[in-house]
Structures are given as C-alpha cells and as structure tokens.
Amino acid sequence: MSMIEIKNLHKYFGELEVLRGIDLTVSESEVVCLIGSSGSGKSTLLRCINFLEEKNEGEIYIDGQMVTAKEINEIRQKVGMVFQRFNLFPHMTVLQNVMEGPITVKKMDRKKARELAMTLLEKVNLLDKANEYPAMLSGGQQQRVAIARSLAMEPKVILFDEPTSALDPELVGEVLGVMNDLAKEGRTMIIVTHEMGFAKEVADRVIFIHEGLIAEEGTPEDIFDRPENERLQNFLGQILV
C-alpha cells in the first residue's frame, strides 16, 4: 500500500522553478533516501510533503488523504519531521519537548504523555537527560531528542531533512544509529542526506534529484555501483573521493 503518493509536483520560488514535476510513490515501511547536490530541490520536496512549503502545482496524498492547506494540521500529525538544525524548544526540558506534541495537539493526559515520552527517550538512549534543557546537550543528543519528539506523535511517516549535516563528525554515528533502528522497526522514512554510506546501508530505494527532477532512482546497489545518469556519476565522483 502506498503511504505517500506525489503526482506532478511543481514548486516555484519567484521566477525560479525548484521542483519541475516530481512523481514519487513511497510504500509503507519503505526507507527512501533523497540525494543530490545542494539547490537540486531535495529539501524543498521534503518540505512540500508536509506543507512547510506550499506547492504550486500537483497533488500529494498521505495515507490515502490528499494534502491541502485546510486539513494540514491533521496531516502533519501523521508526518513527523526532523530538521537539520534540530529546532528543539529551548525553553522546555528534554522531557517537555517530547511531551509537547501529544499534550498540545492530541490533548493527551499529562501522565500518559510523560510515560510515552520516557519510553521514547529510553529508545534514543537519553533517559538520563530527561530533565535537562536542550542548551546543555551536544548536537547529537539534541537531534536524538528531536527524533523522539517527532516519534511522540506516532507518525506514519518521518521526514528527515539532512539530520546529520549540522553535527560534528564524531556525533553523526549516534544519530544514524537511532535512524537505523527506526528503519529496522519498519517505519516509513524519507531521508534527505549526504551520508552515502548510510543511504547504502539503510535505504530500500535511493533517489537522485537533479535540477528539480528525479534524474535516477533505484536500489542502493543500482545507484551507487551502477549509476547510469551522467550527472549522478559526476555527483558520486565528487563526494566519494
């Protein structure tokens, strides 16, 4: 069953056409990695899926429901988002950050939300930091809290927008580790990443985006070992030195 279905998606920033007709279907439990050089439109595509950017043309269905501006709050509860710069709420403790969504949006009982948050913090190995504020945590820890925060809404899909790009190299592993666990649980994930090793290991499908179009897609083996598109070959050549 398809969890996400995108049809002919176009997005303009002023005169510039960033997405030039994207068609993409992601099935349940599938892990899709989006790769491509900066400015290719991969982050914009991700942000269009939960309406952080308003699309100009095309249709997006999530779990069979069409994404429109009207029902966006409802749709967003089904779609988790993890940002490059974490965007934790600095005025709340780690625990409060994770509880915030369930309490404010789902009107979950505080005690229940707390239990849920504790379980999730345990999952990302940060139970001992529950009562600290984000400013006291390392980047890797902050990003793991951000993942726990999006999991707290029990989303059907999680979107990752370059989740390790703002991290020190030695902290990348812990975040990828958590994401790997999520993939193994069978969660549907779309990941914009520059971590080719990770994409190779975790992705069911890798999509190469170039100038607002899907230039090539396939299994990690297809993409990394037998790239056909010349642009993709150049791109891989540049980063896999």
């Binding site: 509860q77 988002m81 940002f83 709420f89 404010t104 949006v105």
Partner: peptide
Amino acid sequence: IDYGQREAARSLGMTKWQ
C-alpha cells in the same frame, strides 16, 4: 525568534495560535 521554532511546532501539528 528563529523561524525553525515555528516550523518545528507546526510540523507537530500545532495550529498557528498554538
């Protein structure tokens, strides 16, 4: 306040006012 804060809040499903 960094725009990312609003985006993070909205992506959890919060309304503008929330």
